[in-house]
């Protein structure tokens, strides 16, 4: 690699990950002062467990992520399956409509959902966050699953039908096992996206349903503490693991099935 290219790459990576690295490093800071290094310690991680509000927010976040990712996975997979039908009328428009929420500003999505819930008289809380998160992560699941569906050899589905499988059996015995890696990857993606989200959750949550990003945000406004750094580091670790697992599963199972990924 050319020396200039090396420098460019180093600068780029520093720009991307420098702030995060700083945060991770300071989460192991002994000192209570955020900007002064006082030696290595894990005391702030221990302190997290004692913070009951933080533990509660974490529980809410995990519940929401699990429920919304499950919902989004089922709906997103069904959407991808429907969009994969070649004889579906108006397919380009429909797939555009499914993918649009991915680029929709979160403020708009959050606001529109808030209006909907208020209009329908639904009490805001855990359930509304789950619905809201499922709504915006569904598109991501649909994209991942549809890419996989498109790569499946059509003659496999025809062979299953030819061997006596009615359409629903074809789906459960051939289609679903072949798209399973994408479905799992889509689930993990939806899970991490839900865990990350602040804006939409802020719009649609109600009393007693504070997610971890919401909790962090409100605490930071009172000043950055080492506990914040510690919980943020854990959040980064969880999200990275989720995304890494999603891509690994997609790649490994893809090779096993002989499908290029």
């Amino acid at each position: 690699m050319h020396p200039l290219a090396r420098i460019a790459l180093a600068l780029g990576l520093a720009f991307l990950y420098g702030p995060i690295l700083l945060l991770v490093v300071y989460s192991f800071n002994e000192s209570r002062l955020v900007t002064v290094w006082g030696g290595f310690s894990t005391r702030w991680y221990a302190a997290l467990l004692a913070d009951s509000a933080l533990v509660a927010a974490t529980t809410v976040t995990l519940k929401v992520a699990l429920a919304s990712a499950s919902l989004a996975t089922v709906l997103g997979t069904l959407a991808a399956f429907a969009l994969d039908r070649r004889r579906l009328p108006g397919r380009p428009l429909l797939s555009g409509l499914v993918y649009a929420p991915m680029v929709m500003p979160e403020v708009i999505t959050g606001l529109s959902l808030l209006l909907l819930f208020v209009g329908l008289g639904i009490d805001r809380g855990l359930v509304t966050i789950v619905i809201a998160h499922a709504t915006f992560t569904l598109s991501f699941v649909a994209v991942v699953v549809q890419a996989r569906l498109r790569s499946i050899d059509r003659s496999l589905l025809e062979a299953a039908a030819d061997l006596g499988a009615p359409p629903e059996q074809v789906f459960f015995t051939v289609t679903l096992p072949l798209i399973a890696p994408a479905v799992i990857a889509g689930f993990l993606l939806a899970f991490t996206l839900s865990m990350d989200d602040l804006v939409i959750a802020s719009f649609v949550s109600g009393p007693g349903a504070t997610t971890l990003p919401m909790r962090l945000y409100s605490q930071v406004r009172l000043g950055v503490t080492p506990e914040i750094n510690a919980i943020s580091t854990l959040l980064i670790a969880a999200v990275s693991l989720g995304v890494l697992a999603a891509s690994l599963i997609a790649a490994r199972r893809g090779r096993a099935a002989g499908v290029p990924v």
Binding site: D153, S155, L156, E158, A159, A160, D162, V174, P177, L178, A256, A257, G258, V259
Partner: peptide
């Protein structure tokens, strides 16, 4: 039918 690509189920 025996398919041209054989269409064996990879899983």
């Amino acid at each position: 039918m025996m398919f041209q690509s054989y269409a064996l189920f990879p899983h």
